[in-house]
Nucleic acid binder design. Structure first.
Length: 669
RNA sequence: GCCGGAGUAGCUCAGCUGGUAGAGCACCUGUCUUGUAAACAGGAGGUCAGGGGUUCGAGACCCCUCUCCGGCUCCA
């Protein structure tokens, strides 16, 4: 008897019955046999998607196979990182008595393993050297990863005897969640050296492959991600196939840390924080310049799309929040105070305020859609442990808007919001990830309402042909939402824009409009913030540009640098000339060397440095040096540019291209 | 909020097993009059996050609080 498998190039390979992945690799060649780590098996006829398996497992007849080696990219990395997690667990078990293991998967940039250490044992990064040392021993021993399929009862017995409560719970859950028609017959155990773990696999043949690894950090993590359960100790690490790749990875991380907006915020003097108001940025002049440029863009683009800007209070009688539902669902995250014995609260959202404006007049179907925009200041008591620079603050300025429309207008309005969002993101070269979040546990409104709202959002996404992820249960308490996410410099994902559908607030506030039939109807509300908040968006912008902003966003667009104080008067006249063009321009007339002035302007990442000395003062010119590209006296584009010429050029870059007038046919949304 | 770590001059950091606080840059003053990434000299600057404790003596050790960092949970 023999079996036939198909190789990636389409060629069939005949093997004896019961042949394994290792046999297949050996049949192809001795080099591949040595390099093989695992094998990807797919069996389209049997409906089996590609699955990476151990080399030691028998291949099914008729399968398509592909040998995984160190060159197989992500799949190979995932494999050895998972191996590394087992090696880590083995080392920790060696070093700490009574430690309980839970789970240890490979993740995007590495791996982790979650442990429960005995009471009184705190593990910190200081312990990493000895843990790593122990890991190296397991790797040097080239322990084989041996898989054993056993009955759930046998596995359970084993882990009960070892007091591995988490493993016992995992087995019980596996058994309980199995389809009653096909009860779970086996679970797999993997053993390397003295360590055995409940694990689905696959693994490389031995621990030897995990040669280039490093532990990264230690963190708390709730068992099963549930904050009501035990907090375990998570140890993060990463692994590569070579020391070189590991070093490159660390180099990348270091470069990423250099663009951290908190670091750049300090270096470029953009904003600061004070212990006296945690989670609340103080915008310094340079940072506010960015804010204002962005705000100008936001304002003009809103106007173009039929939004009318409003401004509303931040402090309200709590009655408003009782009516809106915030009191019931959001109280713990709000700030309250008493004003002359009257309980008041800071708004955590702008919608109830915009609703007051809607209700200030009788509305007709002819008025709809009504679109109110506001750079609305809200306060949210974010838990202390979650604050993070500009990304997670308690004092939030949303680029908010609320659209009041008819049921029929919902989809087109949502589509317009999405297009508007993409228009903005494309200006910065952002490629956001989309999520559709559906009804949460804590919610208001009927099931039919949620059905309709979720359907409308999904409909808009599909009408636009957009790819999105479903995020069940993550909607706002009043309605489902579409969120736009971006990642920061080190890969953390942050929600920026959001488009939320709301049939509930209009009901709670008894919003009405008069229809063509002269009857009263209920409008639908759309809550939308595209950048999300100015704070978070600017945080992302800083990291995106690594502080090297395009001219229209740069806090200082040009700086005039006189070579000596004999040319200060001429330099001031150049500065004044550019100020007249509304440019953000500075003059560095300190008694310092030109080298010093240039160095400091470079460090401030100012786009244009205008050096003026004897020759420039005589000719009415400037010597232009652009940031990052060293200028040259006596040559290059920089020398002898008239102030006129430079002013023209700067004028062309002072505003985002989006802010320049354009014909309605060019409008994106 | 939870787990772990950290907090020394404006910034970046040093400060041994407890013996009474230091560097570079920035700042101020003076000299120099500068041509494309750091002129030279001098000076000033600290309740070592805050509070309590141990000790003859604490920046170092212990406890509490605050803030920050890395995660987890949460995030309208």
């Amino acid at each position: 008897m023999s079996i036939t498998v198909t190789l990636p190039d389409g060629k069939p390979l005949e093997l004896p019955d019961g042949a394994t992945g290792a046999d297949a690799a050996a049949a192809i060649g001795p080099g591949l046999a040595r390099a093989a780590l695992a094998i990807e098996v797919s069996h389209p006829e049997a409906g089996e998607e590609g699955e990476v398996r151990d080399l030691a497992r028998a291949l099914p007849d008729g399968a398509r196979v592909s040998i995984i080696t160190a060159k197989s990219g992500e799949k190979a990395l995932e494999l050895i990182r998972h191996d590394a997690a087992h090696v880590l667990a083995a080392a920790v078990m060696d070093l700490y008595d009574g430690v309980k293991i839970s789970i240890g998967p490979a993740i995007a940039e590495g791996f982790y393993y979650d442990f429960e250490f005995p009471d009184g044992t705190a593990v910190s990064e200081a312990d990493f050297p000895r843990i790593e040392e122990r890991m190296r021993e397991h790797i040097k021993a080239a322990e084989t990863f041996q898989r054993r399929d056993v009955s759930p009862a046998e596995a359970r017995e084993r882990f009960v005897a070892e007091r591995q409560d988490y493993k016992v719970e995992l087995i019980d859950d596996l058994v309980a969640s199995a389809d009653p028609a096909h009860p779970l017959k086996t679970v797999s155990l993997y053993t390397n050296g003295p360590f055995t773990d409940l694990c689905r696999g696959p693994h490389a043949p031995t621990t030897q492959t995990v040669s280039a690894f490093k532990l990264g950090s230690v963190a708390g993590a709730y068992w099963r991600g549930d904050s009501d359960r035990t907090m375990l100790t998570r140890i993060y690490g990463t692994a590569f196939f070579s020391k070189k790749e590991l070093a490159e990875h660390e180099e990348r991380l270091e470069q990423a840390r250099a663009r951290d907006h908190r670091k750049l915020g300090r270096e470029l003097d953009l904003f600061m924080f004070s212990e006296l108001s945690p989670g609340s940025p103080f915008w310094k002049p340079a940072g506010l310049a960015i804010w204002n440029a962005l705000s100008e863009l936001w304002r003009s683009e809103n106007r173009r799309r039929g939004y009318r800007e409003v401004k509303t209070p931040i402090l309200f009688d709590v009655e408003l929040f009782k009516q809106s539902g915030h009191w019931d669902t959001y109280r713990d995250h709000m700030y309250f105070t008493d004003v002359e014995d009257r309980p008041m609260g800071l708004k955590p959202m702008n919608c109830p305020a915009h609703i007051q404006i809607y209700k200030d007049a009788r509305r007709s179907y002819r008025d709809l859609p009504i679109r109110y925009s506001e750079a609305g200041l809200v306060h949210r008591h974010e838990p202390s442990g979650t604050l993070h620079g500009l990304m997670r603050v308690r004092h939030i300025t949303q680029d908010d808007a609320h659209i009041f429309c008819t049921e029929e207008q919902v989809q087109q309005e949502v589509v317009q919001c999405l297009r508007f969002g993409f228009f903005l993101y494309e200006l910065f070269g952002f490629e956001p990830r989309l999520e559709l979040s559906t009804r949460p546990e804590k919610r208001i409104g009927s099931e039919e309402m949620w059905d309709r709202a979720e359907g409308a959002l999904a409909g808009a996404l599909e009408a636009e042909g957009l790819n999105y992820e479903l995020n069940p249960g993550d909607g706002a308490f009043y309605g489902p939402k579409i969120d736009l996410h971006m990642t920061d410099s080190i890969g953390r994902s942050w929600q920026l824009g959001t488009v939320q559908l709301d049939y509930s607030m209009p009901e709670r506030f008894d919003l009405l409009y008069t229809g063509a039939d002269n009857g009263e109807h209920r409008p639908v509300m759309i809550h939308r913030a595209l950048m999300g908040s100015f704070e978070r968006f600017i945080g992302i912008l800083i990291e995106h540009y690594a502080g090297e902003f395009p001219v229209w966003l740069a806090p200082v667009q040009a700086i005039v640098l006189p070579v000596s104080d004999r040319f200060n008067d001429y330099a001031a006249s150049v500065r004044d000339r550019l100020l007249d063009e509304q440019a953000r321009v500075e003059l560095d007339d300190r008694n310092e060397s030109i080298g010093r002035k240039i160095r400091e302007a470079e460090l401030r990442k100012i786009p244009y440095m205008l050096v003026v000395g004897e020759r420039e003062a005589g000719e009415g010119t400037v010597a232009v040096r652009t940031h990052g590209a060293a200028g040259e006296r006596g040559g290059g584009e920089g020398e002898g540019v008239s102030v006129e010429q430079f002013s023209e050029r700067l004028l062309g870059e002072l505003y985002s291209s989006a802010l320049k007038p354009r014909k309605s046919s060019e409008r994106h949304a």
